[in-house]
């Protein structure tokens, strides 16, 4: 499948970048003319992954967060969010709804949201090396894409 557009983004793990990341992705995919609900789903999933890098991966430090995204001809969007932080010991367990190592104010629902709001999610993580979350969602283009 042909890629019609792609982008990369690197920014420090500061919490004010949570809104920067999700609104940037929203404007990147706006060429597909997504519905309000498709847009909200993608923004929410990106916000979850970026927040996890900020809150968990780089808990006591500030490190870089790397986002790359592709838009394909058929309306498929892939988004990769990567950090070089703490890594996750047991990915399967971390992805269970309500599991959190974040204490009182975390709901433990970030991965559950990413899973249900996107079509596909893949998580690769290594302790001490970092975490990469790759997500995919296809939205039916309502406009002719300019290739």
């Amino acid at each position: 499948m042909k890629i019609i557009n792609e982008m990369r983004l690197v920014f420090p793990s500061k919490s004010l970048n949570e809104s920067f990341a999700r609104t940037t992705i929203a404007s990147f995919i706006s060429c597909l003319d997504p519905t309000i609900s498709e847009l909200a789903d993608i923004k929410t999933a990106v916000s979850e992954a970026v927040t996890n890098s900020i809150v968990h991966a780089y808990k006591e430090t500030v490190g870089s967060i790397y986002i790359s995204s592709q838009i394909y001809e058929n309306g498929k969007i892939t988004i990769k969010i990567k950090d070089k932080g703490s890594g996750i010991e047991d990915v399967k367990k971390a992805m269970e709804p309500l599991f959190t190592t974040g204490g009182e104010e975390r709901a433990g629902l970030g991965f559950a949201v990413m899973q249900s709001f996107m079509d596909k999610i893949k998580v690769i993580s290594k302790i001490g090396k970092g975490t990469t979350v790759t997500m995919e969602k296809t939205i039916i283009p309502r406009v002719k894409l300019n290739k």
């Binding site: 923004k43 916000s47 104010e105 975390r106 709901a107 970030g110 949201v113």
Partner: peptide
């Protein structure tokens, strides 16, 4: 306009 799971944590708290 927007809420992610941090908002759920806020409500639960």
């Amino acid at each position: 306009n927007f809420m992610d799971s941090s908002g759920i944590g806020l409500i639960m708290g």
